[in-house]
């Protein structure tokens, strides 16, 4: 009887609440998007969305604010760029190398920082990322202020020429989906379950025998690696890696994207990245472009004061309150 009722109500749910159908529609939209929207814009969005998702793994699911993620984004970019220019490896290997380099850097950062909490953790990560910034400013291979230019996109698996924007778009989409999939799985894994426990009640997690620092460290390494993957891909898209990616502004921007979209939600950072990239692109041409930082600041203040859960968080909350059967806004 009970199961009958349940399956009946399941049938009445909004179609979007069926997770598979929803994902399929989103995927279809992503596949068709370059027909309507300029692919480079979409690629920039996907790279930053992956970056924000990686960052959100720390902020939203471990509850630790890293203020040094620019170091991982730029390390992925520089390492991949350097290898693409100098060694002639294929782009998928280049991205993997950038990801690995960021993972390694993340391990070092994590070793030094996860013992600290709250503002101290943020400060340690900021200080370390500033060290990385000045290293990239001085190191000869980065091209300093001019950036690392002329990074070739290469041929995927040695076969597909990625200098074509459309081919590149599908490559970036694949990278994004892999990265997003890793984050999604991490959140919904036995490991993710312990991360939730640590965020909810750290002393209790310790008293149950969990060495909290090791869990935070692994989460940090995954987060850094995927931020590096985003940076590596971004460098290929623009055929350029510059100090902008290493600057602390970038660490701040990712906080903004995540909060705007909804911290601790799976899709929030993606939406946040979309909004920021769209605004930056819309205003960059016109006169308002000079005021872009003021506009961003205004949006940020509004977001923090008026809708703290972010776009996705507020939407989920609204749906959960008014249409509980829709399945939105359940605790992740």
């Amino acid at each position: 009887m009970n199961t009958l009722v349940r399956s009946a109500t399941a049938g009445l749910r909004l179609p979007l609440s069926q997770p598979h159908l929803g994902s399929a529609l989103l995927l279809l939209a992503a596949l068709l998007a370059p027909a309507l929207i300029y692919p480079v814009f979409l690629m920039k969005f996907l790279c930053l969305a992956l970056f924000a998702c990686a960052f959100n793994l720390m902020l939203g699911f471990v509850g630790m604010l890293s203020f040094g993620h620019a170091a991982f984004l730029s390390t992925g970019g520089y390492v991949t760029g350097y290898l693409m220019i100098n060694s002639g490896i294929t782009p998928e290997l280049g991205v993997l190398a950038g990801t690995a380099a960021s993972a390694l850097l993340g391990f070092l950062f994590g070793k030094l920082s996860v013992k600290r909490e709250g503002i101290y953790f943020a400060m340690v990560t900021l200080a370390l990322s500033q060290l990385v910034f000045f290293f990239y400013l001085q190191a000869p291979f980065t091209g300093g202020e001019n950036g690392m230019q002329g990074i070739p996109r290469g041929h995927l698996f040695g076969l597909i020429d990625l200098s074509d924007n459309l081919a590149m778009y599908y490559f970036v989409l694949a990278v994004f989906l892999i990265g997003f999939g890793i984050i999604f799985r991490t959140i919904h894994s036995p490991f993710g379950q312990i991360l939730t426990a640590i965020r909810e009640n750290e002393p209790r997690a310790v008293s149950l025998g969990y060495n909290v620092r090791q869990y935070k460290l692994l989460a940090f390494v995954i987060s850094a690696a995927l931020a590096g993957m985003a940076g590596a891909t971004k460098a290929l898209v623009f055929e350029l890696e510059s100090l902008t990616d290493a600057h602390w502004h970038m660490s701040g921007e990712v906080v903004l994207m995540t909060l705007l979209g909804g911290m601790g939600t799976v899709f929030g950072p993606v939406v946040g990245a979309a909004i920021l990239v769209a605004i930056a692109t819309l205003f960059s041409g016109g006169e308002l472009g000079n005021y872009i930082h003021i506009i961003m600041g205004f949006i940020f203040v509004t977001c923090v004061l008026a809708f703290r859960r972010g776009v996705v968080g507020e939407f989920g909350h609204f749906m959960h309150k008014n249409f509980p059967a829709s399945g939105f806004g359940r605790p992740q």
Binding site: P190, A197, N201, R204, L208
Partner: peptide, 29 residues
């Protein structure tokens, strides 16, 4: 307790400790 988790999940967090899969981020929950 872990306030936002279900009662069952609270106990499972403890049981998981002896499972040896608590670092397995690639497995499904």
């Amino acid at each position: 307790v872990f306030p936002k988790l279900s009662v069952l999940d609270n106990v499972r967090i403890a049981l998981q400790q002896q499972q040896g899969n608590s670092f397995h981020f690639w497995k499904s929950a």
